[in-house]
């Protein structure tokens, strides 16, 4: 069974919930798919058994010795990545999308493509099973392909170790990496918070999960910081036919647990937060 924890809005407590889920059961595979800001390894300090290079894309570079500064490539580039400065043609690495069209149209073959190979996939053991996570190198495109690779690795680890539970900690937002994180999973848990932004982002997130017809449930974190807004979230979910399976109170122990490299169920097993999260997990 694959469970994905996502949030739309960042900082709602998605990773804290994933970490709690991962420590409720003996033996799970934990897949940290927030490849742009992978953090769960900080709590679980996994023993890395495997490190693989992930090629996220490619970038064009110009060989100045060959380039005649004719500017044809500049006319074809749709990403405004090629500019002319005092008669010299330059490629802006940041804007280059790696489509390779400039290299194809260059009459003197002055442009070549180099691989972006600084991103990594890691796999290893942690105290409750196996763990896979990705680290996207800054500036590289978060296309969702690294998320796919992390999920494939998690499945491989699950089969090899006969573990039937995979917990996916997804990225924030609603773009490609999120879609890659939830496609084909058995259950999505959306963690939100009782703020106007939280509700707004929840709506956009539920639009994504309903497009994919995935069984979805919602957890409201820090619900007591604004109970009126929590009611609004519950009302909205009710209209959409989506269950709110837990309301987690604000508790500084959640952050303290993180500081101590533990999940809340490890750090404060008798806290209400731990109870609410355990119950939500039982529902699944």
């Amino acid at each position: 069974m694959e469970i994905a924890v996502i949030s739309g809005k960042g900082g709602t407590g998605k990773s804290a919930v994933s970490a709690a889920f991962a420590t409720l059961n003996e033996n799970v595979v934990l897949a940290d798919c927030d490849v742009d800001a992978a953090n769960l390894y900080l709590i679980f300090n996994p023993v890395i058994r495997e490190e693989n290079v992930f090629v996220s894309g490619q970038k064009a570079i110009i060989d100045k010795d060959i380039c005649t500064n004719c500017g044809i490539c500049m006319d074809y580039c749709r990403f405004d990545a090629i500019t002319e400065n005092n008669g010299e043609i330059l490629i802006d690495e940041t804007s280059c999308d790696g489509c390779q069209l400039c290299a194809r149209v260059c009459p003197v073959e002055a442009i070549s493509m180099i691989k972006e190979d600084k991103s990594r996939l890691y796999a290893g053991d942690f105290r409750n099973g196996k763990m896979a996570y990705g680290r996207l190198s800054p500036g590289e495109e978060n296309s969702g392909r690294l998320v796919d690779v992390v999920r494939d690795k998690a499945k491989e680890l699950a089969i090899a170790s006969a573990i039937d539970m995979i917990i996916i900690d997804g990225p924030p937002g609603i773009g490609c990496p999120v879609i890659s994180s939830v496609t084909g999973v058995d259950r999505v848990v959306v963690v939100t918070e009782p703020t106007l932004s939280g509700l707004h982002d929840l709506k956009r997130t539920l639009e994504v999960t309903s497009n994919f017809n995935i069984k979805t449930q919602v957890l409201v974190n820090k619900y007591d910081l604004n109970e009126t807004m929590t009611d609004n979230i519950e009302a909205y979910c009710g209209e959409q036919g989506i269950a709110v399976t837990g309301k987690i109170p604000f508790d500084p122990q959640v952050v303290e647990a993180m500081v101590h490299c533990q999940s809340i169920v490890e750090y404060a097993p008798d806290s209400e937060v731990a109870h609410v999260i355990s119950k939500a997990f039982e529902v699944i």
């Binding site: 742009d36 800001a37 996207l136 800054p138 500036g139 590289e140 978060n142 990225p171 924030p172 937002g173």
Partner: peptide
Amino acid sequence: PPGTSCPFIQ
């Protein structure tokens, strides 16, 4: 946007 990938850099 959050993160350090493409949208942040842009």
